[in-house]
Design a protein around this nucleic acid. Structure first.
Lengths: 197, 197
DNA sequence: ACCTGAACACCGTTCAAGT
DNA sequence: ACCTGAACACCGTTCAAGT
């Protein structure tokens, strides 16, 4: 995990990791059957405790807390989101999914619907966090700057403003906004809002 | 694109692609500066027309159509979702984002909020479609089967049922369900449901 | 039980040299 | 302008041999 934080996921090579451990690259194969298994284990480590019991609260608060916990875990290590997205952390995935499905079902959803929404929530958290962790590395001016400058032409003023806000807004706030919007949609699945029908 | 459909993203190598084109691998560097640029161009090709004008309809129908159009484009080529997620298809990303932001702003959202929700929508579509395209390849029994069998123990019956439904439900229906839930959440941002406050 | 050294079969990329 | 052939600097993985 120290090596990941220092060199990043792209710098993580069996040979280089071995060297950091004062060992030959091939020696790692006495501890993991292959690199994929090593990365899986690292992903599990990152998500350790992801399925711990949540505080007693209304279901939407629990979902909010769970989403934030997921994101925080991913942010705790360099390229954490990309690593988790590119591996199969089976144990953690089950723990997280079970927790989410249980919450949704407790709120009144059928298991099939609960499962679909649990995965949708996961996609959002992973996508948002990958982008958070990816946009930082470049020297100083973000990738967005060049993207905006490169094609500032024939783009709607609203879109330009939206992109601007992405670079200036607090990521944690943006994350919560999207998550809450999603939760609001789920609430509509439970007690259909009479106003919109 | 033919080579991608035949061999998949992992099988796409400069040497092998060159061979399929009756050319040496190094010859490709007269047409693309590097492999990343090649993949970017392929991602753009997959998303061609993603920003075309939408039929005149209520904003939520337009979002629904746009989401389905995005997914359909990704599904049209092997590993399309993974390819798009792992590259920077700048042009298509702008076209898609501009369209979504314009719709959301037209519905009454501020650009900053519209941008955040446009990206959230993108994360959902990409995540869902990557999973759709990834789960199919293994021989016959899905990866889910082994995952469920491997840890059928100490998992809530609701979660087991949710996982079962994921393998038996039509992906297109599941996709629409999650997308509609998300759209319902956005609707709540526009005209706050009086019942939930 | 764990590691070394060296090999095998690949990669992306570069570049003189050809046509 | 485009391609060849061959090299360079890497990969993941394997495996006899050592300790």
């Amino acid at each position: 995990m120290k090596f990941l934080d220092a060199e990043g996921l792209d710098g993580l090579t069996m040979r280089k990791l071995g060297a950091a451990l004062n060992v030959q690259g091939g020696a790692l194969y006495r501890h993991f059957p292959n690199k994929a298994a090593l990365l899986d284990a690292m992903a599990e480590k990152i998500l350790e405790g992801i399925g711990d019991p949540l505080p007693d609260a209304p279901w939407h608060d629990q979902v909010s807390i769970l989403g934030a916990r997921f994101r925080t875990a991913l942010l705790a290590h360099r390229d954490g989101a990309r690593l988790v997205a590119s591996t199969h952390a089976t144990g953690a995935t089950i723990a997280l999914g079970d927790l989410a499905v249980t919450i949704f079902c407790g709120a009144g959803l059928a298991p099939a619907e609960a499962g679909a929404l649990a995965f949708a929530l996961g996609y959002y958290v992973l996508g948002h966090t990958i982008e958070e962790q990816t946009q930082v590395h470049p020297s100083s001016g973000d990738e967005w700057q060049s993207r905006k400058a490169h094609l500032a032409t024939d783009v709607s003023p609203q879109y330009a403003e939206a992109i601007d806000s992405l670079t200036s807004t607090d990521p944690t706030q943006r994350f919560a906004y999207g998550l809450d919007t999603f939760i609001q949609g789920i609430a509509g699945r439970i007690q259909p809002a009479p106003a919109t029908r």
